[in-house]
Design a protein around this nucleic acid. Structure first.
Lengths: 169, 169
DNA sequence: ATATATTTTCATTAATTATTGAAAATTCAG
DNA sequence: CTGAATTTTCAATAATTAATGAAAATATAT
């Protein structure tokens, strides 16, 4: 396969995958483009490569910076801004985990704690069905939360260290 | 908090969370409704509870059955079909993992292997940037694939067993 | 077999989400 | 400062995705 063809295929697939995970398709395509780029790219490069508007490019570039998946890089004697992706796939994954945990898991944990005690007879079948389910989910969410924290804060810990080395290099 | 109020809050939050993960909001709400229900519910119950149309209810019920998150249950002397959610939160999670792996990770692994060897000089900077990134992602995807298989096939394995017990029972 | 209850399908419509592009704001070299 | 280059914003528009509801298909009791 030719390089350009392979890149295109990668960018498209990455975009589709991201869409299925509730992430803006263009954002993922920009990320993919920068992941496989040999050098940092300017907004104009990105616009041209993906055939997207300036506004769209700008918006998604900023979002990617917010997720800490890409960084600005300055080229001497050039007023344009250039962007490069974090290439360490583990950092990419932990940054995504961190963002999603903060934006989604944390709010859900809050909601679960708010709804976890309901008025009325705890022996009532309806109330029991509800509270036992909520408690199970709370336990799961609590454990997921801790596990993610551990992974994010220290990838080389007792738990993940063993197999992480296998494919980190 | 009153039970109905708590249920409503749970159903809404579950729906919002699902939306952020690329899952149809209504599908998640039906799932949530059945998760906290004391008894199996009919299509009409679901339509009434969530104020949705018959077509929408039917479509998402079938999708949930496809994901193995809910089951049909028959009530003697009643022609209607009733539905109940799988209440073991671990089974819920492994079923979701299985479906997403099959639908998303597996196709991505296939794409990565298709694009992993590109024509041209392997010393070329552009080609190197591309191939090294693809190989890293392949390693990650391969490991994720194996790990998911292990979790899905045997939750009480050497790896997860230790902390899974903490919140399973 | 027939009538009736129930489920499924799918073209239409509605709601949501993403994209554009031009105007406004900002940056920076001279 | 000034003015050109660049980035950012955002209202309008387009594209995508979800929901409706009535018709068709299916299932079941008698």
């Amino acid at each position: 396969m030719k390089l350009d063809e392979a890149k295109l295929q990668f960018i498209q697939s990455w975009g589709i995958l991201a869409g299925q995970w509730g992430i803006n398709r263009t954002m993922a395509q920009i990320h993919a483009l920068l992941l496989v780029a040999a050098k940092p790219l300017s907004t104009d490069d990105i616009m041209a490569s993906l055939s997207i508007s300036r506004g769209n490019a700008n918006m998604n570039i900023r979002e990617l910076m917010d997720w800490k998946l890409i960084d600005k890089s300055i080229v001497a004697g050039d007023r344009k801004e250039y962007f490069a992706a974090e290439k360490d796939i583990w950092k990419v994954v932990t940054h995504i985990m961190y963002q999603r945990k903060k934006r989604e898991l944390d709010p859900m944990v809050k909601v679960l704690s708010q709804i976890s005690d309901v008025e009325g007879d705890p022996k009532d079948a309806d109330i029991m069905a509800f509270t036992s389910m909520v408690k199970d989910i709370q336990k799961f969410a609590g454990q997921a939360d801790k596990t993610l924290d551990t992974i994010i804060k220290a990838e080389e810990n007792w738990f993940w260290g063993s197999f992480m080395k296998l494919f980190k290099g």
